[in-house]
């Protein structure tokens, strides 16, 4: 089944076109990688899917599980199971990770009409997720991203994904800022999370994350369009030849 379906999506900022007609289908159980040079529109695509308001949608549609979400607010998209791991996670001083995560889980439960999870069960769930990512449970008491190292911030994004259990996760440059060990831990966390009912879209500049998480499809964006799609071998080829190989194509 198509979890995420993007058709002919064109987006601009001011009068500057950024995306020029993107088509993308992501089915349950799949891992997609979106690659491309700096400034190609990768991050714009990730943010537009999540409902960021700084962009103008010129045409096209975005659907989640067959339902159009193009005009929904970010929180409504989140309630329907869309998750974005941020490239630059921002700090919220004084708000503990725990408090933040509980508020997120509660609002999603409320939107779904489910009962709120008890504090005890939530603590348990959060501890397990933290351990899976090699984080000390004390980490949960710290302010959201407050004084975190670059690697901790990225791990914190994945922690949120593990707890919120979204249907479609878009991970924007999650590998940047991670050392080799952290990269492996994060990749293992993502791999363990994927199953036949959800999907992950990895937005990345480098192929090194893909050594740990084998993608089913690789798409290359250049200048606002998907210029090439293929399997993992496309990523390896890119790594070898560089992006200029495609642009000159």
């Amino acid at each position: 089944m198509n979890l995420l379906e993007i058709s002919d999506l064109a987006v601009s900022v001011g009068n500057q076109p950024i995306l020029r007609g993107i088509d993308l289908n992501v089915c349950a159980g799949e891992v997609h990688a979106i690659m491309g040079p700096n400034g190609s529109g990768k991050s714009t695509l990730a943010n537009v899917i999540a409902g960021r308001e700084d962009y103008q949608i010129d045409r096209g549609r975005i659907a989640l599980e067959g339902q159009e979400i193009t005009t929904l607010s970010p929180e409504e998209r989140a309630h329907r199971g869309l998750f974005l791991a941020f490239q630059y996670p921002i700090e919220i001083p004084g708000v503990s990770n725990m408090e933040f995560l509980k508020a997120a889980v509660d609002s999603q439960a409320r939107a779904a009409g489910d009962p709120e999870i008890t504090a005890v069960d939530f603590m348990q769930m959060a501890r397990i997720a933290a351990e899976q990512l090699g984080l000390n449970p004390e980490f949960l008491k710290r302010g959201v991203n407050e004084g975190f190292s670059g690697g901790e911030k990225k791990r914190n994004e994945i922690l949120q994904m593990l707890i919120l259990k979204p249907k479609v996760s878009i991970l924007d440059e999650t590998d940047s800022g991670l050392d080799i060990d952290a990269l492996r831990i994060v990749a293992n966390g993502i791999s363990a999370f994927t199953n036949t009912t959800n999907a992950v879209v990895l937005v990345t500049h480098y192929q090194r994350l893909l050594d740990h998480i084998e993608p089913d499809f690789v798409h290359v964006i250049a200048n606002g369009s998907i210029v090439r799609s293929g399997d993992h071998s496309l990523a390896l080829e890119l790594e070898e030849k560089g992006y200029s190989w495609l642009e000159n194509d």
């Binding site: 970010p74 929180e75 921002i90 919220i92 508020a103 919120l164």
Partner: peptide, 28 residues
Amino acid sequence: SDDQLFLCRQRGIDPEKAVSMIVNGFCK
């Protein structure tokens, strides 16, 4: 910031709750 607000909303928290949470954190 709009970035803080967007982070909260992306996680499903409505904007009013998000601002109150951010302000409460500031006053902790």
